Deep mutational scan, measured.
Amino acid sequence: MSIQHFRVALIPFFAAFCLPVFAHPETLVKVKDAEDQLGARVGYIELDLNSGKILESFRPEERFPMMSTFKVLLCGAVLSRVDAGQEQLGRRIHYSQNDLVKYSPVTEKHLTDGMTVRELCSAAITMSDNTAANLLLTTIGGPKELTAFLHNMGDHVTRLDRWEPELNEAIPNDERDTTMPAAMATTLRKLLTGELLTLASRQQLIDWMEADKVAGPLLRSALPAGWFIADKSGASERGSRGIIAALGPDGKPSRIVVIYTTGSQATMDERNRQIAEIGASLIKHW
């Protein structure tokens, strides 16, 4: 058993032996400061991975655009179909130039040979490839079927209504393609630790998130040596930015963190910096 498999397999085991986890309101002070700095709403939640207890939250039940963070949920739905014998990670999917949409750094290189379902999930999560996400959405029946999958998990909040890139429109008060921090954190925890997916599929999902290559300026920039993080970021119109993550010290995840912001006029660099500073406060007061 690899170190990674050891880590995921023991998450339920550690729940019975973990020390009490204490919240630190200092992080919420930073979240509120980020709102002031960005001139935008910020949603935040910090969840204990083992118990599911909410440690801190700010606007946990307000809607925010999901942006590309939905791609983790999408690959969770794909893995659920794999577990049920309805899909194979090794199945190759062929597509054409007409299928390519904006920001497809991986799929645009494989027009001649296509990509496997496994490769598409990797591209969608680690590189946020939009065509990969659309191709995967097609395999499960489209955005409405992803919403149905989430409903069956008990998440009646999170919804996907459109495809890439239209889902990134982020119109104020538009509930399409949105979630709430509390709903996203709970759903992510179920995917990573619950019985919905097999152990192998849970491991695969967290491996893809751990290999994320496009979230460096966010929480990863504040991470001390030896800490673990598996994450997925997102960005969209109207100053929207977000990240969902499982992270913790000693090389294993122990908390879920979800951060969303929307409605800012700030630059992408400034949005990144504010999220990184929230992460730094979280780690300092861990």
Rank of each mutant, 00 (worst) to 15 (best):
Q4P: 15
R7L: 09
A9C: 14
L10N: 07
F13A: 14
A15T: 03
A16L: 15
C18G: 11
P20H: 09
P25S: 08
V29W: 12
K32Q: 15
K32I: 10
D36A: 14
G43V: 02
Y44R: 01
K53M: 13
I54S: 06
F58A: 08
R59C: 02
P60I: 08
P60H: 14
P65I: 04
M66C: 05
T69H: 10
T69S: 03
L73P: 11
C75V: 13
C75N: 00
L79G: 00
L79C: 05
S80R: 12
R81A: 09
V82F: 07
V82L: 04
V82I: 10
D83R: 02
E87S: 04
E87Y: 04
Q88T: 14
Q88I: 12
L89I: 08
L89D: 04
G90E: 13
G90W: 12
R91H: 09
R91A: 04
I93D: 05
I93C: 05
I93H: 03
Y95C: 01
Q97A: 15
Q97T: 14
Y103D: 04
K109L: 13
K109I: 11
K109M: 15
H110E: 06
M115S: 04
V117G: 03
A124R: 00
M127W: 13
N134D: 03
L135A: 05
L135F: 04
L136P: 01
L136T: 02
L136I: 07
T138V: 12
K144E: 13
T147I: 05
A148G: 11
A148F: 11
F149L: 08
N152H: 12
H156Y: 10
R159S: 04
D161E: 05
R162G: 03
W163L: 08
E166I: 07
A170E: 12
P172C: 09
P172D: 14
P172T: 09
D174V: 02
D174S: 06
R176Q: 09
T178K: 01
T178C: 05
T178R: 01
T179I: 03
T179N: 00
M180E: 12
P181D: 00
P181I: 03
P181L: 02
P181S: 02
A183S: 10
A183C: 07
T186K: 14
L188G: 02
R189G: 08
R189H: 15
E195K: 13
T198E: 11
T198V: 07
T198I: 05
A200N: 14
Q203E: 11
I206R: 10
I206N: 07
I206E: 07
D207Y: 12
E210G: 09
A211V: 06
D212N: 13
K213M: 12
A215E: 05
A215Q: 04
G216V: 07
L218Y: 02
L218H: 02
A222R: 14
L223K: 05
L223R: 04
P224D: 04
A225H: 14
A225D: 14
G226P: 04
G226T: 08
G226N: 11
W227L: 00
A230C: 09
K232F: 00
S233F: 03
G239P: 01
S240F: 04
S240L: 05
R241L: 01
G242W: 00
G242M: 00
I244G: 00
A245G: 06
P249K: 07
G251N: 12
K252I: 12
S254Y: 07
I256G: 03
I256C: 04
V257C: 07
Y260R: 02
Y260S: 02
Y260F: 11
T261A: 11
T262D: 09
S264V: 06
Q265D: 13
A266P: 04
M268G: 05
M268H: 06
N272I: 03
A276C: 11
A276H: 11
I278D: 00
S281A: 13
S281T: 14
L282P: 05
L282C: 07
K284S: 11
